[in-house]
Design a binder for these strands. Structure first.
Lengths: 224, 224
DNA sequence: GTCTATATCTAGATAGAC
DNA sequence: GTCTATCTAGATATAGAC
């Protein structure tokens, strides 16, 4: 692996682990056993590093959020879609840890980041509309707007909130699956008669056995 | 007003406006036209300042969160309670702007801050239980846990999320009332037949006319 | 490409005169 | 209580040798 790429990877690793504001250029150089001067040969500075990491995040997330859920009427598909969304955010979670600080210090990523949040909300809205059209969900337009906003907010701050509560016994996988369940719990009450069935399926997937099913779906139907 | 108090007030003002990490001790001194040395005569440093501000926040918020809603069956009372909660958070919003950074830099406030979040969740849970007992809300125990968590999360990150969307035409008052509506929209779908009535009342309060009613309630029944 | 050495800049903090 | 002057530490960034 080329030095430039090693720097990118080590930075992401350190940013996620320690938090971006707590990682200095010297820290990154130390982690790789190279000199700070060498790092500055490859990147003008920390800003360029963060920008490049964000660009990678943006491109991939953009694709994910624009891909409509294949079959939102099936509980499993919504679940799987949310897992993908959460996993991607988790891979770049340093961006979410102190959003407003990041957006302020690196102004260039402000607009695209906001665009992603709006995309997220739009994706949620689209799924809700599909569910309503299929007669599964009973909700008016205003309700859908509120619901989509709640979903976007929950997804965006889930990692922060979980960390804030500070009482997680599980690992990162649990963290993500709990987040998915939390997001779906916002939709459930609008489902009327099918609500019970809906949440039962969700809880089944949430169990270890169900996760194996997610793994199967991933290897079978996943694009990469 | 004594210098010490002027420092406290100016700090809160600046922290809220610019964000705590962007305000230096010199900034605070300049704002008050006093010397940095003078500031350090009154406070050991920025940490002591933040701690004192947090303590004030904590004491008041603790009281608010432990005060049960007078009559949760009346829509207006829930609304008013949430307004009080949001307003208090808004007065110290710098604490919420970069929560994880603040909690990391000022370790002493970590535990009490977490306690407040849990209290918030407990208050939400208590209200839900009351609504269920009264037969107004249909929901099981697991559902209440999820719901209370959603409410706590929404309230905690509402200001951040709104700022992130970046398309608010209104002022701070609108911001708070929209937050209240967003939080209540989480409860609404569990109300069954009364749902329509519930949200209609909420939207009425949300209008300018309704806010006058909140003002009236405040002056009539408010403790301070 | 990589290193060592060093310069710059900022924020936090202190000493001592008034 | 308040001021001026100054110090320290940490992070970013650059110069020039290898």
């Amino acid at each position: 692996m080329k030095t430039r790429d090693r720097i990118i990877h080590a930075s992401l690793e350190l940013f996620n682990r320690e938090g971006e504001p707590n990682v200095t250029t010297v820290d990154i150089a130390n982690e790789l056993d190279i000199s700070p001067g060498n790092l500055y040969y490859h990147f003008k500075g920390k800003e360029e590093l963060v920008r490049e990491l964000f660009e990678r995040f943006y491109e991939q997330f953009n694709v994910i959020l624009r891909a409509p859920v294949q079959n939102p009427l099936r509980m499993e598909d919504n679940w799987f879609y949310l897992v993908v969304v959460f996993e991607h955010m988790h891979a770049y979670r340093f961006l979410y840890r102190n959003i407003s600080l990041i957006l302020q210090r690196y102004e260039q990523i402000q607009r695209p980041f906001r665009r992603l949040i709006h995309l997220k909300q739009d994706a949620a809205r689209a799924i809700c509309v599909q569910l309503r059209t299929a007669g599964i969900m009973q909700i008016d337009d205003a309700g859908i707007d509120m619901l989509a906003r709640s979903i976007a907010l929950t997804i965006t701050y889930w990692f922060n909130f979980d960390n804030l509560l500070g009482d997680r016994p599980g690992d990162d996988e649990d963290l993500i699956h709990d987040g998915v369940l939390q997001a779906l719990s916002l939709i459930a009450p609008h489902l009327g008669a099918m609500q019970r069935e809906f949440m039962d399926t969700a809880l089944a997937i949430h169990s270890r056995l169900g996760r194996a099913a997610v793994q199967a779906t991933r290897t079978k139907g996943g694009k990469k």
